[in-house]
Amino acid sequence: MHIVVCVKHVVDSTEIHVDKKTNELVLRGLSTKINDYDKNAVEEAVKLKKELGATVSLVTIGPRDAQKTLKEALAMGADDAYLLQISPRQQLDTAQASLILSKMIEKLEPVDLVLCGEVSEDGYNSQTGARIAERLHLPHVSYVTKLSAQDGGYVAESTLEDTAETLKGATPALLTISSAINVPRLPTAIQIMKVRTSRIKNVKLADLGLDDSVLETPKVKMLGYEIPEQERKNIMIDGTASEAAASLVKYLQEEKVM
């Protein structure tokens, strides 16, 4: 069984903040890391590897720094990794990412399962998995919270807002993995360091039958952003407990929330 996991290299979302002086987002100089949601997918793949003797390949589009993300995933137990390097400043929309990733996966055929994280921490688009599935003409199951697979097929449980579904089907298929499915193992820093960079194969657009125009033609572009004003009244109510309570009730009635 051959499993391919799509892994994204992202900026640490917990560190993104607004520079108080310039009122701008601080996006540069932040630490980068593996998309935590993709770790769940890698973990699930490595579990299947242990169970069924599957091989696990990783595919990533990212800057050179993405090597550290791939090393971490390889240290978790994946077998090989493919990186299409782009400039750190290159933006890609979901259509571009899906196209390139699909081509990378095609090159690795035969593929039985494609696993993706449920969402990426920086984009929060939740599209790429489904788009790749459509492009590769694969059925897909999203938000998989439990997975069992064997050669030829899978059974997956998926949790939506109000329902829990159980689906089964034949491979090849694409699954987006919910973060609730497992707790990804943590390889030690040494184990990550020991992964040789030479294990990461570099892929060029030309290898995929594409050229640079793919990078220059997004379907969606970000024009700009605004920092929402956090306007809270910050009214502190004084007095004894009963006095404060009475004042508060009056305020809430004025606000029409009571």
Binding site: D12, T14, E15, H17, V183, P184, R185, L186, P187
Partner: peptide, 25 residues
């Protein structure tokens, strides 16, 4: 890799945010 979940979270927090709470640096 025979560690508790909370320990893994803790280490990641220290590595990424520079503190065990996982609060932004």
């Amino acid at each position: 890799g025979r560690v508790k979940d909370k320990q893994a979270t803790l280490l990641e927090a220290v590595e990424r945010n520079g503190n065990p709470y996982g609060l932004p640096s």
